[in-house]
Simulated assay, not measured.
Amino acid sequence: MQSRGKRAGKGARKTKTSVLLLVEGDETEKGYFELLKLVKGWHTPGIGVPGIALSIKSSKQNAIIAMVREAKKAVIQDSRNVVFIVLDEDENLPSQFQEACSDILKWNDSKKEGSGRVYFALTSPQFEAWLIAHHRQIPESCDKHWVVKEEERLGILEATQRKHPSRRKRVPSSFPVANYPQAAENIEQIDLNEYGASNATAIPALIQAIDKIAGN
């Protein structure tokens, strides 16, 4: 007969890592990552099965410094192990991003090993450029106006019932999110906490980081 201690240890639930994606958009970014979460199989661990406790939250903050405060709060008060802030270059000046990034790097360095960490995942000029990359190559130099026109031409997003201008479109359930490996080839890549060129994104680095946490 097995001892109680052995029975408790056999098939024990593996320790999970709590991850938060803090995104700017109520619809576009949140909808994309909800679809990606399903495709990638980022799930809560079961008995003997590795996994990840991943949640996606739309930030109510507009300023990057306020998002940093929100991310730190998630680590300190909500016991999040890792928080990724997903944001656009067009909403933040380079100087603001560099200031916030420097603050986060210092904050991460001050934490004990195993404590929560915060990272930025930037897309330039805006997140929709990453969505377009699922369909075609992104030109070497592009701006927000090109992204808006190309998104409309390709019909990537669908209309919502919300009246506020910033909430009129969302990622449809039919979006080819599984094409993310090809999307990574179609746009310049930068690392987490990095500010890049006018058509660069850290989303592939973010996906790789979450895969590593999830044990994929």
Rank of each mutant, 00 (worst) to 15 (best):
E91D: 11
P125L: 09
R69D: 12
V82C: 11
Q126V: 06
V86H: 04
F120N: 09
W130Y: 11
S124G: 07
V82Y: 12
E70N: 10
S124L: 08
S115D: 14
Q96I: 07
P94G: 08
A129M: 10
N92D: 04
P94L: 02
D78F: 07
L93E: 02
S102P: 13
I132G: 05
M67P: 06
E99G: 09
K72Y: 14
A63E: 12
A100K: 00
I85E: 00
I64W: 07
V68Q: 04
V86E: 02
S79N: 13
A63T: 12
V75C: 14
L105P: 11
P125I: 10
P125R: 02
A133S: 07
F120G: 14
S102F: 09
K57S: 08
N92I: 04
E99N: 15
V118G: 00
S59E: 02
A133L: 01
K112V: 03
E113V: 13
A63D: 12
S115L: 03
Q96K: 08
I65T: 15
W107P: 11
L131T: 13
S59Y: 03
N62M: 10
V83M: 09
F127H: 03
P94C: 03
A121V: 05
Q98I: 05
D90K: 03
E89G: 09
S59K: 01
A71E: 06
L131H: 08
S115E: 11
G116D: 01
I64Y: 02
R80V: 11
A74K: 04
A71S: 12
E113H: 14
S102T: 15
